[in-house]
Design a protein around this nucleic acid. Structure first.
Lengths: 344, 344
DNA sequence: TTGTATGCGTTATCAG
DNA sequence: CTGATAACGCATACAA
């Protein structure tokens, strides 16, 4: 493999000049530049990123720690983040944490030994008690629900408000006995608890009672769990006419489970989810849901991280206050709540 | 940031000894080891991976170039590959190529400037004409359909056989006018052409005519394209009683489109897909499909790549013949072809 | 068992 | 505008 030295020799210049050409420094005569470029092409020169990283103290790569990529939600989030990072000339390396607190702390505390310039961490296992662990000396952006007021930038969804809006939408459509399908109860503030809170607020605002039987706790927010629970709810004779699912994935399972149980959606039961994953529009019936503007969230998370990374530069700008960004949202009305919104 | 030198000073030993401790070399007295570990902990020492990479000429990271991660299929593939890579102590960095030939060649010819020890490349844009470009001096494994007999290891699906089996299944179930929904016709051997071939073989084997009207070419293998085309087929009065979709994503769209058009599946039309993405089981009706054993494919791809990487080591084993691995497959019968296979 | 010296390939500094 | 020198942090011969 040709090095800068080899190129320099071949072009009859110094290594420094080659480096200047590579990095588009202005002070290079175009004749010299030509010579160097020719030599580089001839020797098929490639920069050695490891050497450059060592010298610059920067890798041009950020880590993205998410529970998994093989789910619609995180897959789409990852894609949006990769795209946003590209605009900052950053690569993205994905770490799968499996939603375990240990793995999240791992990704955080090591950040893979400074393999990354910064880390975007989607917290679903860590909690408020771990907030101290966020005090690390490299750029971190938290993407998620479980940590607030931490020492790092934070991008979150409007979970409570949006869930209230979703539930309110069901009420508007005439539902009076609305079930909520949520994840396990922990002592953390997580996606489920926040969205559950929004659900309760909507019931209260409408003067509807909160029936504990209508609170359905799943062991995991999966297709299968949603399907099984929906079937179980019908078979057990539970009286309900609406379902608010804390994720679209669960809602998709619920649609399947209700179909199994012979319940018609939206006629007998209306269903709404949360996330607006791509598939929702194409289900039968198409799924009403909350759209939290993922692209914007991804963009902001990357922008914040990139800013922090720049701040660690020698000539970087002043360190600024920690930022908390909450995305916008909208209610997407489709067939599962009586809308007409199938695809196209 | 503490370096090995700082630790050495703090522990009263040489940098060499610290290095030995870090890398678990045997020849260190345990007393010395303790001292060093204590100093490392006290200074919060982290190895500088850039320096180590430069020194070792190896990064411990492999690239995975796929068209996108925000699709069920590639998301699930990526997850499987990340998991398999972990077993080899390799990190995975995902490059999204957007299915463009240029980006694929890019990922290949640079391999990001030796940022990766090797590359798993899912080819959907490159073609046989680009086979020369695969002659690079670092480990590459091709995952896909469009390149055969190339100079690198190759992991592929049993596209033709499996598609024949899928179509045969429709025939068995009584279909006589079976449409195929495929991607754009190129002059390459790609997913669509191979699976289309399998479809034709099944028709021929059953003595069924090949009606060109039943060959439906989509501009893209997306949910929307599938849905729109299915609707169009019904509205145009096309006579068909079965659909073979070259991917589950398209099939999912088709189920939606047929529902829009008021066509009952499986009663009036039977549908089968290809890939067995996770969602297929939970659709209404659940989707029959081909399961090509993705985990096995991912595992093999990573194993092959890891082997090549080892071979580039100074003390590495002999270079071996290029390998071509074709996965197994099975037909998964669910409701969309009259099976009972809903979830649970 | 531990230490010394050297170089991996690049770029920042500063001198010419 | 170009070049010499040094240093980034680590790991490896080799010496002690």
């Amino acid at each position: 493999m040709a090095t800068i030295q080899d190129v320099a020799k071949a072009a009859g210049v110094s290594a420094m000049t080659v480096s200047n050409v590579i990095n588009n420094h202005p002070n290079v005569r175009s004749a010299t530049r030509e010579k160097v470029l020719e030599a580089m092409a001839r020797l098929d020169y490639r920069v050695n990123v490891a050497a450059r990283n060592l010298r610059k103290g920067r890798t041009g790569t950020v880590g993205l720690a998410v529970p998994e990529v093989n789910s619609s939600y995180y897959g789409q989030l990852a894609a949006a983040i990769i795209a946003a990072a590209e605009r900052h000339d950053l690569r993205v390396c994905i770490e799968q944490t499996g939603a375990s607190r240990e793995n999240e702390l791992d990704a955080l505390s090591l950040s893979r030994n400074r393999l990354y310039d910064g880390l975007i961490l989607s917290t679903v296992g860590m909690g408020q008690a771990d907030v101290e662990r966020l005090k690390v000396d490299y750029p971190v952006v938290i993407l998620g629900e479980r940590i607030f007021g931490g020492p790092v930038d934070h991008v979150a969804m409007p979970n409570v408000d949006a869930s209230q809006a979703a539930t309110h939408h069901l009420i508007e459509r005439g539902c009076r006995r609305i079930a909520v399908l949520r994840g396990p109860v922990t002592d953390e503030v997580d996606v489920s608890s926040l969205r559950h809170t929004g659900y309760r607020q909507a019931l209260r605002a409408a003067g509807l009672p909160e029936d504990p039987d209508l609170v359905q706790t799943l062991h995991a927010l999966t297709l299968r769990a949603g399907a099984e629970r929906a079937r179980g709810m019908v078979e057990s004779g539970l009286d309900f006419d609406g379902v608010f699912c804390v994720t679209d994935t669960v809602a998709m399972g619920v649609l399947r489970g209700l179909a199994d149980a012979g319940v018609r959606v939206p006629r007998q039961v209306k269903v709404i989810g949360f996330d607006n994953i791509e598939e929702s529009e194409f289900l039968v019936p198409s799924l009403s849901t909350i759209d939290p503007d993922h692209d914007m969230m991804a963009q902001r998370a990357v922008d914040l991280l990139a800013r922090r990374i720049e701040q660690t530069d020698p000539g970087g700008s002043e360190s600024t206050e920690r930022e908390e960004f909450v995305s916008d949202f909208s209610v997407v009305v489709r067939e599962s709540t009586g809308g007409t919104g199938g695809p196209g």
